[in-house]
């Protein structure tokens, strides 16, 4: 259901802060222990989640999430495990959760069947990294039927004509790509996100969530001051990849997510 997302963003607007939506590859460090990582992030102040389906050829992802995907796949994760993790995360944390995937696994299962599975698992939305608005209609229709929102992207390169098409498709939120390039840490804060949010605002009140290249609480805070939500991925996945076991990964995540959560309040 997309309603929990809508509620989250309106509550955050009332509270003068942005929602923190951490990304984590499903099935890390193992399929059985995956839920403990999401639980730790929930305790530390995450408002919702992006559950990432590990993919063998992730075009929009930098080296950290690529490596995480490879490790998750060899640990036995994949589409089936990810949908299980989604169900467990929604069931135990009650937080709005979206699935993040690439288009081919959705096509392989069949768009309708995939939408059924996400709905049955309690997902609020779906993000498909290589699905621009031009190809989105058949996907959006299938998910809409089950009250699941198909998230669409706006990038610094997106033209006004394209922006209008994205908004006309009525996504549950717009994924504002904060920086050119794939996912991963940046040393400098993005200079794009404020302008991007402003461009969306001129046409629509739809929530804008900033992601890509946000890896420190300072960068997250800058994004939180203008956007409705912030996605942090690589910085958290790196903690998990560097940990020796699930317990220490959860501990590292608790600390990191706590830092990001504190950065969500606007000045």
């Amino acid at each position: 259901m997309s309603e929990p997302l809508t509620e989250l963003f309106s509550r955050c607007r009332e509270e003068g802060r942005a929602a923190l939506l951490p990304y984590m590859t499903a099935g890390l460090p193992t399929p059985e222990e995956s839920l403990t990582l999401f639980a730790a992030m929930a305790e530390a102040g995450a408002d919702g989640f992006e559950v990432g389906i590990p993919y063998a050829d992730p075009l929009m992802d930098g080296p950290v999430i690529q490596a995480a995907g490879e490790r998750a796949l060899s640990a036995g994760s994949g589409v089936e495990v990810s949908l299980d993790v989604l169900r467990e995360v929604v069931g135990s944390t009650g937080k709005p959760t979206v699935v993040m995937t690439y288009v081919n696994p959705v096509l392989r299962m069949g768009i309708e069947a995939f939408a059924d599975r996400v709905a049955a698992a309690g997902g609020s939305g779906i993000i498909i990294a290589d699905l621009p608005v031009d190809e989105a209609e058949v996907f959006a229709a299938a998910f809409r039927k089950r009250d699941i929102g198909l998230v669409l992207f706006v990038a610094p390169t997106t033209t006004d004509v394209r922006l209008e098409r994205v908004l006309a498709a009525k996504p549950p939120f717009v994924y504002g790509i904060a920086d050119l390039g794939v996912t991963g840490a940046r040393t400098a804060a993005s200079t794009h996100i404020a302008a991007l949010v402003e461009r969306v605002r001129r046409h629509s009140d739809v929530p804008v969530v900033a992601g890509v290249g946000i890896s420190t609480p300072e960068q997250a805070h800058a994004a939180a001051c203008v956007a409705d939500g912030v996605i942090v991925g690589t910085a958290l996945v790196r903690e998990v990849m560097g940990a020796t076991d699930a317990a220490s990964a959860a501990e590292a995540l608790r600390l990191a997510v706590g830092g990001f959560a504190a950065a969500m309040q606007r000045d």
């Binding site: 075009l59 929009m60 288009v103 990294a129 290589d130 699905l131 621009p132 608005v133 031009d134 190809e135 669409l152 992207f153 706006v154 990038a155 610094p156 390169t157 997106t158 033209t159 394209r162 790509i177 050119l180 390039g181």
Partner: peptide
């Protein structure tokens, strides 16, 4: 065929 590409690239493809 088609264009299953990240949004960032779409304007360049156009």
């Amino acid at each position: 065929g088609g264009q299953f590409a990240p949004e960032t690239l779409m304007p360049a493809l156009e």
